[in-house]
């Protein structure tokens, strides 16, 4: 039963991830990213990592992607710009590097599944265990993320405040 669900969600995940990259309209990309995150969260829940799954849904599907959607819709990319990027001469090179990366990746997965004999048990990622680890073993990195957030907050404030003086706003509205 579990494996049926796994294959179902894995297929949806791969299809959705492909749509993210291949869709012509950026808002379709963002929407299929929601589907991809949802199926990824489902796979985590199948592994009994409930907390990670829920956080993934709340943070990514809930907050980050809504933000993406706003940005994509507000940016209003014109078609010519998109077409220009698509015809870039570096595209074949990108495909080549991507293909090389994929082959290498598959080789690594194949080689390590051959040597790895033990199967991982369930992750059991409940809030209690994660909280306990965060406040003991990983106390320092956990506290330091607050400084990462502080840097981001100061950055946003300094970049956003007073960026639009009266003459700039007129230019934008015209």
């Amino acid at each position: 039963m579990n494996s049926i669900f796994f294959y179902f969600f894995a297929t949806v995940l791969i299809l959705a991830a492909l749509t993210v990259v291949l869709a012509r309209n950026p808002s379709y990309s963002v929407l299929s990213l929601v589907v991809a995150i949802f199926s990824l969260a489902s796979i985590f829940i199948l592994l009994e990592a409930f907390f990670v799954g829920v956080i993934l849904l709340l943070v990514y599907a809930g907050a980050v992607l809504v933000l993406f959607l706003f940005v994509v819709m507000l940016l209003n990319l014109n078609k010519e710009e998109v077409a220009r990027v698509r015809q870039s001469r570096l595209r074949p090179l990108g495909f080549l590097v991507g293909a090389a990366f994929l082959v290498e990746f598959l080789w690594v997965i194949k080689a390590s599944t051959a040597t790895e004999t033990k199967t991982p048990g369930s992750i059991r990622g409940t809030i209690e265990t994660i909280g306990r680890i965060l406040f003991t073993d990983y106390l320092l990195p956990f506290e330091l993320t607050s400084f990462l957030l502080l840097a981001a907050v100061i950055g946003i404030v300094s970049l956003a405040q007073g960026a639009l003086k009266s003459d700039d706003t007129q230019q934008l509205s015209s």
Binding site: P141, L144, T145, F147, L148, A151, A152, G155, L159
Partner: peptide, 12 residues
């Protein structure tokens, strides 16, 4: 996390 603290402040 340390690298990110450094680079995020450098971006801004």
């Amino acid at each position: 996390i340390s690298i990110e603290i450094l680079t995020v402040s450098l971006y801004v």
